[in-house]
């Protein structure tokens, strides 16, 4: 399943003096099984973009196409897109509830939205809402909890008494329970300690290995570097770069987009400016950098 965006514009408060353009002509193709990280400063349009993917926001202009779904708020365009489609497809495009089974969206700090007295009830809420029977919902919830690494010891626990990383895994399971093909997450590692972060990213990698498409908004460059297959940089409502993580630090001036520059990159620049003798060109990780310093300085010490 591909996700395609065609020249999407999104304007908040379109008919008021407060109008602001959040997306200003965005086009993209996301392939099945990809692991995409979206980076960009606050207000660059990241969250708006991902919310169009499951029709929480409808583009003011342009559209998103996912299988039989055409997501747009432009009525004229929608009519045209659905012109030659059959009845079922027209119906599917009416309220998009079937789309939301395919594309699951996990908000920032999803644990703030936990509400049930037990983990299992919380995760069952989604499937029940989609009209599955209680039994079906339970089976789906158990599967989802197992996918995020939570076993039966957790089912009856109150979600509020779990650790930060565990809570977040419960919240992600709530989305997984409906078995979406695409999972979109807004800042999944924010506010977690290193251990919680690794836990969550491990879960996401497993899901990706199972064939699910992951779309992750993040500020954390170590997440980009260690987990993404594709990285997209957004600025002022546009996609300004699309590349692979290894090339990101070389191709893109991160500071220009107020992105976090990994410290090893900063340090590499400092060495360069200070006239370091070694070869700094091909360094793309912390370890590369250490190795190069050791090659130069170590040989001096030993020689």
């Amino acid at each position: 399943m591909q996700i395609k965006g065609f020249n999407i514009k999104y304007i908040y408060n379109e008919n008021s003096i407060d109008r602001s353009t959040a997306l200003n002509g965005v086009s993209f193709t996301f392939n099945q099984g990809d692991f995409i990280c979206i980076v960009g400063k606050t207000g660059s349009g990241k969250s708006t973009l991902v919310q169009t993917l499951n029709a929480l926001l409808l583009p003011s202009e342009g559209y998103v196409n996912i299988d039989e779904f055409f997501i747009t708020g432009n009525k004229k365009l929608k009519k045209e897109l659905l012109k030659k489609k059959d009845k079922k497809q027209k119906k599917d495009n009416k309220n998009y509830s079937n789309l939301r089974k395919k594309v699951g969206l996990v908000f920032q700090f999803p644990e703030y939205q936990l509400f049930s007295n037990s983990v299992i009830n919380d995760v069952m809420f989604g499937p029940l809402n989609f009209g599955f029977s209680k039994e079906e919902a339970k089976t789906m919830a158990i599967k989802a909890l197992s996918d995020v690494g939570l076993n039966e010891n957790y089912y009856e626990k109150s979600p509020f008494l779990l650790s930060g990383g565990e809570k977040r895994r419960v919240a992600i399971a709530g989305i997984l329970a409906s078995n979406p093909e695409v999972i979109v997450l807004d800042e999944p590692t924010a506010g977690l300690d290193n251990k919680g972060k690794v836990e969550i990213m491990k879960v996401l990698t497993t899901l990706n290995n199972l064939g699910k498409t992951l779309i992750v908004i993040t500020h954390d460059m170590s997440v980009v570097q260690n987990y993404a297959k594709t990285v997209i940089v957004m600025s002022e409502g546009k996609i300004v770069h699309k590349t692979i993580p290894d090339k990101l630090f070389d191709e893109v001036d991160l500071e220009e987009y107020s992105l976090e520059v990994p410290l090893f990159i900063k340090f590499k620049k400092l060495l360069k400016n200070n006239g370091f003798e070694g070869n700094l060109e091909k360094i793309s990780s912390y370890q590369d950098l250490i190795d190069e310093i050791i090659r130069i300085k170590g040989s001096k010490l030993n020689g």
């Binding site: 400092l270 200070n274 003798e277 250490i290 050791i294 300085k297 170590g298 010490l301």
Partner: peptide, 28 residues
């Protein structure tokens, strides 16, 4: 971290170096 990792390979960094700017200067 970087000071520790270099030390493991016998590259000793002056104790008074507390930021990456000074460390870069030292290594160059």
């Amino acid at each position: 971290k970087i000071k520790n990792d270099l030390l493991k390979h016998g590259i000793k960094i002056d104790e008074n170096i507390k930021n990456i700017e000074d460390l870069a200067g030292f290594l160059c």
